[in-house]
Amino acid sequence: MDIIVAKDVRKKFKLKHGQQVKNNGIVSNEIDALGGFDLNIKKGEFLVLVGPSGSGKSVFLDIVGGLSTPTSGVVYLDDKPVDAPSEKTGYVFQQYALFPWRTALSNIEFGLESRGVVKEERVKIARELLSLFGLSDFEDRYPYQLSGGMQQRVAIARALATKPEVLLMDEPFAALDAQTREILQNELIRIWEGTDTTVIFVTHSIDEAVFLADRVAVVTARPGKIKEIIEIDLPRPRHGDIRSCSAFAANRHKVWGALKAEVNKAQQDWKHAPVNSK
């Protein structure tokens, strides 16, 4: 059963006065971020989006999350068109965006407060999540007292606290060093495999995509649409050492094969773009 269905989603942005961009050779003052994005996501699946920079991945996530509305087309969540942020959706941003005035525990409580969950229950849920991420000793710490990896764990815990059916993750590990990143991937997959949450995860790392995903959807250079969807045929539960097996390399190869041409195309576009196109 499909929990999310995106049908011919298009998104245009009006550029600021004086800015121009080339769309398929035609100079215009509008930018086509998404150009007919079709995607069905199964309930409980881990879907990873990869694609060149500027291909509209974040824009698509914002539309699924109800933070932005499409110019045309629809996204259905549980058969209902998304037009505002839904209780069923959780969001983890690239920057940690933890609140500096709240402790780790209280940051995790944030989403529960607006849903009217009582204090005792909030603290209980937040403590469970902290312990799930091995952060029980850090509940009273403020964000600046936590490492980047810890901060991102807290941000994920905050999104999980409201028990979302769909978790949107936009390059959540991009700012972390390579080792921390792998550790967090391992933790995320361990925790996710114990839930029935649907995840849409954006990354630029093919390794990350292959390690996490049930399916990897490759997005074309702008205007973004789905180019190809690759089933990752690695067994679950997955452990860190799966990264070095030959099946992993084969999947990696498939994804890169689909992505390569788009990355090159995007680079050509940037080269030919007018100087003030951004």
Partner: peptide, 25 residues
């Protein structure tokens, strides 16, 4: 901007939005 987005994601509106996000920030 991220705080505004978080407020929307977690459904913070009117007075709660002001007192829990805007003013503390």
């Amino acid at each position: 901007e991220k705080y505004h987005e978080l407020a929307r994601v977690f459904d913070y509106k009117s007075f709660r939005y002001l007192s829990k996000v805007i003013i503390p920030s």
